[in-house]
Design a protein around this nucleic acid. Structure first.
Lengths: 255, 255
DNA sequence: AGGCTTTGTTGATTTGAATCAAGCAGTCTG
DNA sequence: CAGACTGCTTGATTCAAATCAACAAAGCCT
């Protein structure tokens, strides 16, 4: 079985040197832990900017682990308006929402050139039978997804300013988790996409960002944002419970 | 092991005559399906109106299956404002969001006298090792939860009128799923709670309900709502994709 | 380079829902 | 039973964000 691993880019060997393996269910599924004698045969795949991993209605075969780049999931209303459900970055898993009905209930597209690993869901569940560790990991990741969604849900009930401030801090925190500077952000998404994600218009997002700049909380230049005052921004979120993305023990708290 | 079943109210015997067993992971866990030789030892428990199943920060031990009545999950912001995350009815499972961090990230309280079954999560995961069917069911229910949250998320981006109309239709659909009339609703929650759930003020909810009544879409009297024009209401939602709660094949579509 | 499109910013105006305020109908309580 | 309370409704006013409108800057083609 482990012969297969080398037949696909993204097999065990790839996993060993993958930057997100510590987070990755796929890594466990490759037999990294005792009690597992199979492989989910993760296949690595490159997505060009704008290309789709899947679209609404596509039959569900596998979960996707983002290895590099970023992916957005979204829905389009019949009036043609796009609603962005989430931005997914390295280490994130996309596709849990498709399990229940066997079809993807949303679209997923790459925001920039990205690579993802494809995890066969059938194989994954079979492997869960022999690996309690993997099962725990899978269920934990799904639970984490409900936390992320709950956070987004609550964010939708806050003011525009709070939404934008929170968005920036979450981006900062996620960069910090991955060892990048939390103050020098490179946004992979357009202002329009930020608006579609936060449930605001582009104009509002733009206005708030310039307001933050005028207050010297940040400096912006195209998709580069330098955060000058992380604490002030944190005040503005009016947040209590950012419980998602708490990965390596909320690094940003110390910043 | 199966001796235990009768030591708790809600063991196998109870499950056999439980109205929600068709939906219930607990029922599978009680050995209803081949390949399962253990029991999650579901314990039935009665909750008085207003009493809590758990509160934010409580250690996570088990999932809860609603058998009768209704449960709300909510968070309270530091300003003391309540945000309702969901209303949970018979057959629903509460607590998935606690798995990731081992603590409940929200509160759960009964809206009326309710009974719930407690499913030990430890035992459940152990049983999943021997029962692929149970594992599939658990993962499916968790996926369904992400769909529910996504729907709530999208609902937050619609107009107040669309939110209220959608809320009523979802309630109607859920009653229909359980064999009750989809047009004669008995709301377990107050207007205030509806507002807290939809991200609107009580006043707005009240105004919209009276507007619907003035348009002869419904008749309301206290917590009793009779829907007169299901189709008109459906038009008002402006909805595309109500993908959650599609249980027994969207019965309401035929109404 | 010059035209074209896309993306972002800024300003003026409108509007949907919140807020503020008051009253009413149940129902709880001493 | 009176008074207080709670839940619901209705009206007047305010306000935050959407909409409408214009323009600037950056990328893209030939």
């Amino acid at each position: 079985m482990s012969v297969d691993l080398y037949e696909f880019r993204g097999g065990k060997y790839q996993c060993e040197r993958c930057g997100v393996r510590g987070w990755c269910v796929g890594y466990c599924a490759e037999g990294a832990h005792s009690g597992c004698n199979g492989s989910a045969q993760a296949r690595q795949r490159v997505q060009r900017a704008g290309s789709h991993l899947f679209r609404v209605g596509d039959p569900f075969q596998s979960l996707y682990v983002v290895r590099s780049g970023s992916i957005k999931t979204y829905l389009t209303s019949e009036e043609g308006e796009e609603q962005i459900l989430g931005f997914h970055q390295p280490g994130d898993i996309v596709g849990f929402d498709a399990i229940a009905r066997g079809r993807h209930p949303c679209n997923a597209a790459a925001l920039e050139t990205s690579s993802v690993c494809t995890l066969s869901f059938d194989k994954l569940t079979k492997l869960c039978q022999s690996s309690p560790h993997l099962l725990g990991r899978l269920v934990e990741m799904m639970s984490r997804e409900t936390l992320r969604l709950t956070d987004s849900l609550l964010l939708g009930r806050r003011s525009a300013e709070q939404r934008v401030a929170t968005f920036l801090l979450v981006q900062a925190e996620r960069q910090a988790e991955r060892g990048y500077s939390p103050t020098a952000l490179t946004l992979a998404m357009s202002r329009t996409d930020i608006g579609k994600y936060l449930g605001l218009t582009v104009e509002t997002v733009s206005r708030i960002l310039t307001r933050f700049q005028d207050l010297d909380l940040l400096a912006k230049e195209r998709n580069q944002i330098r955060i000058n005052d992380l604490n002030a921004l944190r005040q503005l979120t009016g947040e209590i419970d950012s419980h998602a993305y708490d990965g390596p023990a909320g690094k940003i708290a110390m910043l």
